[in-house]
Structures are given as C-alpha cells and as structure tokens.
Design a protein around this nucleic acid. Structure first.
Lengths: 202, 202, 202, 202
DNA sequence: GATGAATGAGTGTTCATTCAT
DNA sequence: GATGAATGAACACTCATTCAT
C-alpha cells in the first residue's frame, strides 16, 4: 500500500524544515504552512506531532544507515572506497546538514541514548566487512594501526563536523558562504590525505 | 557591579540544563525548578526568557573563545601545545558536551550565521600567533602542508564531534557509557598521532 | 417511503450508545465505528450530528409515549392494569436504562422544558381514560385520594428511579450487579404493594 | 491551609453550572466566563479540566453523603425523622436539581459503577442505626415489612425523581413552572402519607 | 450510495510574562 | 528582593462538516 501523496508532502516538508533548515521547534502550523496544507491534515495522517517526529526520526536513521551501508558494499579498491565514502558523506551532509544534530536532539529528548538500537545487528553486518578491510590495510601499513572504531569515527568527524557545526564555525571565524562552500569541497582531499598520509608522502 | 548570587544561580542552572543536559526546550519553569527559585525571579533578573538565552549564549561563546585563546597563549613547544590543546578541548567538551550544539541551534534560530562576529578581531588576534606557528611547523615538515584553517578544523572535529554526537554514536554502534568514556580518552592520543604521524612513525 | 437499512443501522447504533450505554458525548466517529460505517455516511443520512440527535430524541419520546399509551389502552381490571404497567415500565427501563436521562439532558441542552409539547393533546387523550379509572378507584377507596398526577408520578418514580440512577445507587451502597438485578425485580411487587397497601393489609 | 477565594469561586461556579443548570458539557471557557476569570486560571488551580471535574464530583458525593448522614443522626421520633428527611431531600434537590444526574453521568463516563466506594464503611455506619429503626417500625407495623433497602430507595425515588426528571415531566405533561413548584411541595405530604398510610387512614 | 481527503472552528493546555504585594 | 496570582498568546489536538470521486 503506497503512501498518499499528501502524506509524503507533509513528511518531506517536515524533513526539509528539520534536516535542512534546522528548525527543531517548528510547530505543526509551521509545517502545515510550509507544505501548503491545513494544520489538521498533519493530525489526520500522523495522529500527533510526536508521531510525525517519530516518522521523521525513522527516516533520518534509515538515511544515515544507508550512508553506512555504502561503506560495506562497494567492491572497489580500499583507497578508492575511502575516497568515495568521504565524498558520499560530505555530499549527503550538504543535502541535509542538520540531520545529525536533529537525531542527537531527539535522542536526548527521548532519552534513548543507551537503549538498544533495533538495527544494531544490521549495522554490525554492514560494518563487519569494512572493518576487516580496515584491519587488513592496517596490517599492510597503509593506515596507522588503531582500533578500527577510531578510524571510522575520525573519518566521520572530519567529514561531518565542519558541516553540522557550520553556523558556529562560519560565525566564529567570520567566513562567508562562498568561502565555506569551497572549504568543504577542499576538505574531501584533505581528509583523504590525512588518512593515507604515509603513502601520500612517499 | 557584581552579579547577585541568585542571578548567578539562575544562569548557572540554565547553563547546566542547556550545555550539560542538552535540553534546549527547557521552559522558564524547568529552569526555576532546577534552581529552586520562583519562576518570576527569572524575569526579575533577565526580563525575558529571550534575554536569559542571550546571556547564556554569551557565556557559551566566551567559554569557546577561552578554549581558542589557550591555543595562542601558552609558551610551550608546538607538539606539547597541540597535546595540551587536544586535552583541553576534550575535557572542556566533556564538562559541557552540548554547548556547541546549543550555540549552533541558537545561531540558526536567530539567523546570525553570516552576521559579523563582534569578537572577530579578538579571535583573529588570538589565532594569529598560533597560525604562524602552524605554518612554521608545516615548513619544517612536522605536519603536512594545508591551509591552516583545515588543520584547526580537523583538530576540532576529531576532538569535538565524538562528544557532541555522543548519543548518536553510542546508540548507532551500541556502545555503553563505560566503553565510550574510555574511547574518548583514547581519542586524545589517537588524534595526536594522526596529526604528527610522520614523526610518530619514525 | 421506507428508511434505508443503513440509516436504520445508524440510528439504532446511536440509540444503543445513548440509551443503553449512557455515553451522551459520543462523537459521530464513535457512532460510525460502533455501526461499522464510514463517518461521512452519518452526514449523508442525517445532514448533521444535531439532526441525528433530534431523530434519536424523537424516537426516545415516542418510545416513552408508547409506554404511557399502554396505560390507557388495555382493557383489564385496574389492579392487573397497574401490575402490568409496573412490569412494562421496569422492563422497558432495563432495556434502555439511560433513555430518560438522555431526554432530560437534551431538554436542558435545547432549553425546551417549558415549550409546548407537540404531542400534548395525544398524551392527554391517552391519559384521560386512565386518570378517570384512577379517580374511580380513589372513590372506591382502593387507593388513597390524591391528585392523580401524584399517583402517576409516584408510580413512575419508584419504577424508574432505581434504574436510571443505578450507577449511583450501586456505588453508594456497594451493591453488585447480581444483587441489584434481583433488587429491581423485587421492586415490582413492592411497588404494587405500596400502591394497594390497604387491600394488601386486609 | 485554606483554599484561595478564586479557587473557591471557580469550583462554585462549576458546581452551579453542573448541578443547577445541568450543563454537563460546559467548556473551561464557559466556566471561566461564568466565573469572570481567565480560562488559564482554571488550569492554574486545577491543572486540567478532568481534575476540576474530579473536585466537583468529590463535592457532589460528599454533599449526598451529608444528606444520608442526616438520616442516621437526628434523635427524634421515627415519623418526625422521616418527615424531616423528606423535606431535606426535596429541598436539597431543589437547590441542586441535577447533582444526581451529574454523578450518574460521571460514574458512567469513568466506568466506576462497580468499583469499591471509598466511603462505603462510613455510609454503612451512618445507615446502620437508621436501618435498625426502620426494622423496628416494621415490627411494630407502622410501615410494611420489606427489605429496608427497598424502603430507603422508594423514599428517595419519590422525593428525587420528580426533581431530577423535572424537564421531562414538565414537558411531557405540559406543566408550567409555578404549577410544578407547588406540585413538588405537595409531594412532601404525599410521600409521607404513602409511607405511613395505615396510620394516616386510621 | 459510500468513502477518503480536507478544513474551520473550537477545546484543553502550556507558557512567558506582568503585577500587586 | 521575592512571590503568588493572573493573563494573552500560542500550541497540539479534536471534531463536525464538506467535497470530489
């Protein structure tokens, strides 16, 4: 059974407001106005603001999982895989820059940080192959030997942080949009070089 | 003119709620309850919730500036300075993990991303010396040659992101508090080694 | 013109909810759900909730009128007539215990207490013969001489009140369903004996 | 700790609307308007409409218990006691005619008919002495021998029903207010005579 | 006849804010 | 300084109602 077009319109509008604009306090009226529909329709389709939030949160986590999924799946050489990964994360973050902040806020609000992630097994499965690859590369000396989780988190950090914290960074250092946009693009190569520095240096 | 003890109690309570607990939607009643004072007192001292938020935001930015200030000031050898810096950022973030997210949310809400930062000159001043040091080290080959801003942002990213996004990371990878606490401590050395890898490898 | 089966289903469901369950605040959705039809159908047949209420109210008053009608019509000896009447009222009330409360609520809501009852002439007609019978019995000394209206109201009171106020009485005196069901059945004879006590005493 | 005057104003207004006017669907706005206060004040004092309803319901049941209490307490001769009782019930009902209907509606709505009445022991205590008196009178032959509960319920029925169902009765029989007011006053003697008919006849 | 989609009006509730004390 | 009382504005939510199909 397909979702109604209006239902999709509402959730896409909500995602836009939350993930792209970062307005986490948007009211149902804000969302309805942005979608060009009556406010009561939101309750017609989602019963409550809370359930709309849940739906949005589900989409956020599945979107993030998809990004992680790409880590494990592609069948290319390691360095190219990492290169693709960096690009995918950065481009994904540029599309929905506040998605991660939104999820963190929701996790805090719902106090679910330490509850079991229902997709944990799936994620472990995704990651398993990639972690093995990472370990193999460490053995080969391509990248430094550390716990693979650190490798992944550092990769994510350097790709995601400059985008999630963009308003803070731009304002603190007084950087305009054009400059920062280019800065983020440059970041792709820089992150790659940091990861594979030894080789790059050779 | 010294602040009243009550005024300070209120703002400290607010900072605690916003920066430590990450509850950005706290009402004045929540804050008053947490501080053990009457709700009207908040308006007595701050006139409006908005002005309390501004005061909290000011303290947040000055706290962050202090962190950056430490970059420029200390008179120790570069590697030690970076090591101290990593520790200071991570320990500072552990004290107030949601401070950066709070500031980003506020900047979005107030739409001040691209407005002029009133402390810009001060920050530039702080940073100037440090950036020169960074450039000098690049010349010496201690660290790879990149635009110094990338160096700083990457340093910040690897220190801050694992803490700001802690709920997301812990939940996604199914990590418990004890493990993650240690993970963050390990991160200190790992970030250091990434930055000075060539030397570390030698 | 015959009513459609669906129309009848709706009004019977509504009567069930109002008269039997006593849920006077039932929404059109509640009624539609109970009837297993689409909510919009209620408006299709009755145009508005208000008009459905009117239809239900009409059925309530005509049902009550039928009960009163039985007073006047049957051609049996007076004591037997009263005995039948008591049974009919009590059994009727047991079928639709909250019918009278519903009507009272509606009369209050619509503020029609003192408006002219359109069936007044009909009722007078029904009652006329019975009132004459009552008066005749009073002359004969079978029952005490009072204004016949008191006689009728007291009869109704003792039959109806224990049923309309059932939840209140059961809860106040802590009586369970089985006990109270029997209590009401006993009430038939007791009311009869109160009315004809002199004879019963002889 | 005394209730605030405003809190009392609100609950008295609510009682007036529910018990005297019989408007069970009154909104918080209706109540606020009638009390001449801001709607939010109702929530300030009672937190929710539901809790206001609970407070009103508590007052209703305690008011009814007081009426029953009078049965057991006075130290006068039985016939006088019954006479006083009839007057008290009728006068009490005239003050708050829809109190009983309100309670029934609430009991239905809250589905508490068969739950344990928390005041059951108290009520039993009140009634015990009176029931003994009733039994003694039955032995003496003053009143017919029936289960004492029937005696009480019939007494209540004849006093209360004509008042609770007043709109229905007036409208059905086409009686105006003046007539009905007198009718209810007459009912006092008539109920007394029905109960003590044998003596009255002598 | 029947239904899903859509809406305006209203309802309970919350909240920041003000004010008298 | 400090507080309880009071309020207007806004919010999520419900509901009867309408309409296109």
């Amino acid at each position: 059974m397909k979702e109604s077009a209006t239902e999709e319109l509402i959730i896409n509008t909500a995602k836009n407001i939350f993930f792209l604009k970062g307005n986490y306090n948007a009211t149902t009226q804000d969302i309805a106005d942005a979608a060009g529909v009556n406010r009561a329709l939101i309750h017609y389709y989602f019963r409550s603001r809370e359930q709309l939030m849940e739906a949005v949160l589900r989409e956020a986590t599945s979107k993030m999982n998809e990004r992680l999924f790409l880590i494990a799946q592609s069948k290319v050489e390691f360095k190219e895989k990492v290169s693709n990964l960096i690009s995918l994360i950065i481009e994904g973050m540029l599309e929905t820059p506040y998605l991660e902040n939104f999820v963190v806020n929701e996790y805090i609000r719902l106090d679910i940080t330490c509850t079991k992630n229902p997709h944990k097994d799936l994620i472990d499965n995704y990651l398993c192959g990639f972690l093995d690859e990472v370990k193999a590369e460490m053995e080969k000396g391509t990248i430094p030997k550390v716990q693979p989780l650190h490798f992944i988190i550092n990769l994510l950090s350097m790709c995601a942080y400059p985008i999630s914290m963009r308003p803070l960074i731009q304002h603190t250092f007084g950087l305009d949009d054009a400059f920062y946009q280019q800065f983020i693009q440059e970041q792709k190569n820089i992150v790659f070089n940091i990861i594979f520095r030894d080789n790059a240096a050779k």
